[in-house]
Simulated scan of single mutants.
Amino acid sequence: MDKNYNFERKKLMLPEYGRHIHQMVDYLSTIHDRDLRNRQARAVIDVMGNLNPTLRDTADFKHKLWDHLFIMSDFKLDVDSPYPIPSAKILYPKPDKMEYPRHRIGRKHYGKHIERMLAVLKDAAESAERTQTACNIARYMRAKSFEYNQEYPNNEVILKDLRAMSDNRIDIDENTLNNIKNDYKQNHTNNRARKNFSAGGHSNGKSNNHQNKQGGKRRMGKQTYK
């Protein structure tokens, strides 16, 4: 007895339609009379629609059936379709080739974003904000260097790299970096103190109001008792 296993048969393009529908589509390609082939193709479309009666009310139901017909024929069926005939390129589009970045990073441990920020900052006019931003970048460079080398470099190395990466147009000294760092810490401390003070005052206000309400209730209770 001959055994006919599915893995030995032709691969189904759309398994949800079954092998019999695929055999019908294959038979269409063998019909030489074009008029007969068109009539038989419409008959196959009707059979395919009967397999999914719940989808008949959808707007593009017929369009999908015709597309599936051409897919099952591997886009080789020559019939007159009421819709645009799809192609393999449209169904399986080839993605556009992505260009690999060719820009070489001078100092990889800082990353490309540092280079981009310095490229913008070096053209900015001299101001306190520019100095503040440069110091923030310097501290970020120090953190990135630690991630890469597992050790913190001294400020002299960071500031030297900062000047080199900005074409010597951003030049800050160590005193400026330390002063701005200390000002940042002091402002951060003051902000926390103000928040804590505001939270404490608000809490005390609630506590006093609660105590006043409790005292008023006790006084009212005593008067009622008398």
Rank of each mutant, 00 (worst) to 15 (best):
K213W: 11
G201K: 10
S203T: 03
R9H: 06
R39G: 00
S127F: 03
K185G: 02
V79Q: 02
C135R: 04
R218S: 08
E16N: 14
I114M: 13
D57C: 00
N50D: 14
K217S: 07
M72W: 02
I170P: 07
N50S: 11
K185T: 12
I137S: 11
K3P: 00
L91G: 01
V44Y: 01
E147G: 08
Y92A: 08
R163F: 08
D78V: 03
E115A: 14
N168R: 08
L14K: 04
N179K: 15
T133I: 15
N209D: 09
R19E: 15
A119G: 10
R169V: 03
N38C: 06
L14D: 03
M13H: 08
T224E: 09
N4D: 05
D26V: 03
M220F: 11
G221E: 14
P101F: 00
G205L: 12
V157I: 13
G215Y: 07
N52L: 07
D171V: 15
Q186V: 12
H32R: 06
F197V: 05
I105S: 05
N154A: 05
T224K: 15
E126H: 08
Y17W: 06
A125G: 12
C135S: 12
M1V: 01
E147V: 04
A43C: 03
S127G: 10
N149P: 00
M117S: 12
N187C: 08
T133K: 13
K185C: 04
V157N: 05
Q40T: 08
V25N: 05
D80V: 05
R42E: 10
